[in-house]
Amino acid sequence: MELKLHIDGENVTAQIDRPGESLLQTLRDRLGRTGSKNACEQGECGSCTVLLDGDPVCACLVPTAGCEGRDVKTVVGAVPKPVRDAFVACGAVQCGFCTPGLLVSVADLLAREDDPSDPQIREALAGNLCRCTGYEKIIDAVHHAAEASR
């Protein structure tokens, strides 16, 4: 089946032939948009987080077949520059596999809350696993990004 999607500001047509195909598979395997990552494909790690019509979702849990005409923002289109800059400057990136998903979640948090507290940050990012950083530098980066965005 053929679907029209709006991805990171572009109109994109996707051909899918598997009914259960996830949005993540469509992005990565069909469209070559590998910015969103695939650490579990079970909805547990958040590395595939994208904004679907503005709401953060695990792209690995969303069937592409239900996305006709919808707006998808990945790490490429969802994340304001100050957020990306803060992750770089604060050392919040190590292997970086969690980073695209985390950045989307942080962008979503900062859109709702311009000066989040530590507990608010922890709550908002609880669905994004990172195996490398122990999260300290990620929390630093969110505060820096919030400050830079105000």
């Binding site: 070559g32 590998t34 790490v75 994340v79 990306r84 770089v88 990136v93």
Partner: peptide, 23 residues
């Protein structure tokens, strides 16, 4: 010094090629 890692930029921009991204 706290030099910034060179691969941080492609990693935050979503265009760092991991082994699983290869084609």
């Amino acid at each position: 010094q706290s030099a910034i890692r060179a691969d941080a930029l492609p990693k935050v921009n979503g265009d760092f090629d991991y082994a699983s991204d290869l084609a």
